[in-house]
Computed example of a mutant assay.
Amino acid sequence: MINKEKLIQEIIQIREEIGHDYVEPEIKEIHYEDDELTIIAPDRPEKSIIIGKGGWVVGKLREKLGIKSIHVISYTDLILKEYQLELSVKHLEKLLNKKQIPEEYTTVFTNLLELLKRKQEAPYNNNIIQKYVEKNINRENIPEAKAIIALSGGVDSSFSTVMAKALGFNVKSITIDPGTIILPKQFKYNIQNLTEAINIEHEYVPTDMNEIITDALNGKIHPCGRCSKNIHTKIEEQLEKEDTTVMIFGDLLSTGSQAIVKHNDKIRINLPALLRMEKSEIKNIITKYNVKKIKGYGCPLIVQVHKKYPQYKSFSIQRVLRETRAGILEPGEALELIRTI
């Protein structure tokens, strides 16, 4: 049987064996399920003690215990995650109670609310969403609950596409295609693999972004803001064309009430933000659907801007730092991204 006292002694012993300083770690609580152990440390310094330099301590602990995996979470990070999930639940309940959700979408949004509550009850459990997707990805979708998904081929939008189908949306994925300088072939491979794997409709929408591209290459702008706004406008146009109410994006940062917004009878959902997903959770889910991680910044345009105009690197780094402060990215993941910039 795994208990806190045994874990603390094992960690002390492992640290001694590999030459780390003697420290008696604090463990707030533990959870063991499906051969996976979650250790909740009081804060990040205690988390670092349990993980050890380069992850050696936690790696050897997993070997000694003979279990599949160990996740170490700081309680201070967990408080933020729990609070953000609470905001998501309250806002979605408010929309449903005030009948702001069209009737044909009620079942799907109720599914979403129930999932949010399950995650809120156990925010430390990073397997809740993965198990839900595996169980429901082949469910019969609701024909009237149509949703347009902005699918770029990156991990976040790919997760949103998989999640929307598992929730019961009748999904059509749209890719705004400005050309290979913004949407290179590796993203298109991911799009093809994903849409075939989960059997959903997909359409490329060619888009002229030459003005944005020219201004960026001439050093006038950092392109991401204008590019994102352009894509959002084009998706809204597709929403009107398809006579659909719901559009879904892969934004991770707009948590709480900003993760699901109703405006002019149209509903925008940022699914990863609403579900308070972390990058590691997302990657574990979408790799099962032939979506490959693209290293660093996959957009060739921003890579060229970084090379020609180093002053714009700080704008890109700030985005990474925002996701790190929000607990979406681990510091190690953030450092890897910053190095590519």
Rank of each mutant, 00 (worst) to 15 (best):
N190W: 05
K279G: 09
S48V: 10
F315K: 03
V58H: 05
E36C: 01
T287V: 13
E10S: 09
E82A: 11
S158W: 02
E103K: 08
G153A: 10
R268C: 04
K185D: 13
E33M: 02
E24W: 02
P184K: 04
P102A: 14
N190D: 13
K295G: 13
K28W: 04
K4T: 14
A216I: 05
S228R: 09
G55Q: 11
P143Q: 08
S48L: 07
E121A: 12
T195D: 05
H31M: 10
E24F: 02
R226N: 11
F159G: 05
A197I: 04
I182F: 01
Y124C: 02
I40W: 01
L329G: 09
L115R: 03
K99W: 12
K172M: 05
I221T: 02
N230S: 15
R118H: 03
T76H: 01
G327M: 01
C227G: 07
P331F: 08
Y312L: 04
K4E: 08
Y309Q: 02
K165M: 06
L78Q: 06
K6F: 14
A216M: 00
A145C: 07
L167W: 02
I67R: 01
T76Y: 05
L80H: 13
P272T: 11
A326H: 07
I328D: 00
G168Y: 03
V205S: 12
I338T: 02
L329S: 08
I27M: 01
S160M: 06
K220V: 07
I221R: 00
D215F: 15
R322E: 14
L151E: 03
E201K: 06
L116I: 00
H232E: 13
R44C: 09
I40N: 04
N218I: 05
P300E: 08
Q186F: 09
L329N: 05
P300N: 09
R44I: 12
S160V: 02
E26R: 03
L85R: 03
G52S: 06
S158N: 03
I67A: 11
D177P: 11
S69F: 02
I200G: 06
E93V: 13
I8G: 07
L96I: 11
I148C: 08
C299V: 00
I128C: 06
K6D: 07
G54L: 10
Q130P: 03
I11R: 03
I235Y: 08
I101R: 02
I181T: 15
K293D: 11
K293R: 01
T255G: 07
K146I: 00
K90Q: 15
K28A: 10
E10T: 04
T245G: 06
H232V: 13
Y189D: 15
I128G: 01
L95G: 13
G52H: 00
S158R: 01
H202P: 09
E46P: 00
M163C: 13
S157H: 01
M163Q: 10
N284A: 14
I285K: 00
I50V: 06
